[in-house]
Design a protein around this nucleic acid. Structure first.
Lengths: 150, 150
DNA sequence: TGCCTAAGTTAGAATCATTTTAAATCGATT
DNA sequence: AATCGATTTAAAATGATTCTAACTTAGGCA
């Protein structure tokens, strides 16, 4: 069951990333939770098992993971930045009313993304290395809430 | 030549958005500049022609335009939030080294975006109303700079 | 045309997420 | 086991954005 966590650690070792207890803890949290947490959410959750972890460490570690490409940042228009362990390619639906984030796994997504990356590279000369794709709209809960109001 | 600006104003009138000199000035700037400005860039640029415009007004006005869907926000990972008058559908290439933003106009883009929106709606139940698509990589200038270094 | 009022603007203060600092600690290579 | 550069930490600093309260205005209506 920890296999996905193990895989993530192995990948970091392979890339000669120095391992610390804090990084282990944060990465484990991200791999085992798919709740798109904010820094604050992570800090509170980890405070149970690992008190006194500095906020700066969480910021530093998340920035490291983002730079390594194993984590991506998401802005939901509500509260701060959200983080997502980016293992399998997917994109996100974000609620314009409450900020709720949902994962979208679509078999053709890698193909579509590659198409957009190639076109961008051809047109701009950029050396493309990744993408962020989000769609916006009302989540089911907010649809209900707003309908019952009017 | 002001026709695109006029069109934008007409659209706002049609939507019963109250027009003020500040909103006119900011919208004109956005329609006639495709430089993906930050709030600070806009403030400095407008200070030449319209001194004393409050930063709060620029923030308020941009938020209004974003809510109306005629302007979108872009984070380039470097400095603050960038704004883009979103007239014709397009997406962006963002430099991971310097933050430079390039527009990508791709004929098939609306079709591709619709495909991603439909799949997201089917999978999540969200009522999708828009999208933000970005690809990341090194811009030509940074490719040169980084190559000559090593 | 001129009032009236809700909406918008303003300068400055306040907020708060994120970054910086400098000292203490630690991981991993020898 | 020793070493040293990298990491962590708490606290302070930063700075983009939001809030406040008073002032001004756009646009509908008489």
């Amino acid at each position: 069951m920890g296999s996905e966590v193990d895989e993530a650690f192995t990948e970091l070792q392979r890339r000669h990333v120095r391992m610390t207890p804090q990084r282990r803890t944060i990465l484990t949290y991200l791999v085992t939770h798919h709740n798109h947490p904010t820094v604050e959410t992570i800090h509170e959750a980890l405070d149970q098992q690992t008190p006194n972890m500095s906020l700066a460490t969480i910021y530093n570690t998340l920035k490291l993971f983002v730079d390594l490409g194993i984590v991506i940042e998401l802005a939901n228009g509500e509260d701060g930045v959200h983080y997502d362990y980016y293992n399998k390619p997917h994109y996100h639906a974000i609620c314009t009313n409450c900020g709720r984030i949902a994962d979208v796994f679509y078999p053709d997504f890698p193909k579509v993304a590659q198409q957009l990356e190639k076109e961008a590279a051809d047109q701009t000369g950029y050396q493309i290395t990744g993408n962020h794709i989000e769609v916006y709209g009302l989540c089911p809960q907010c649809q209900k809430k707003l309908n019952s109001k009017s």
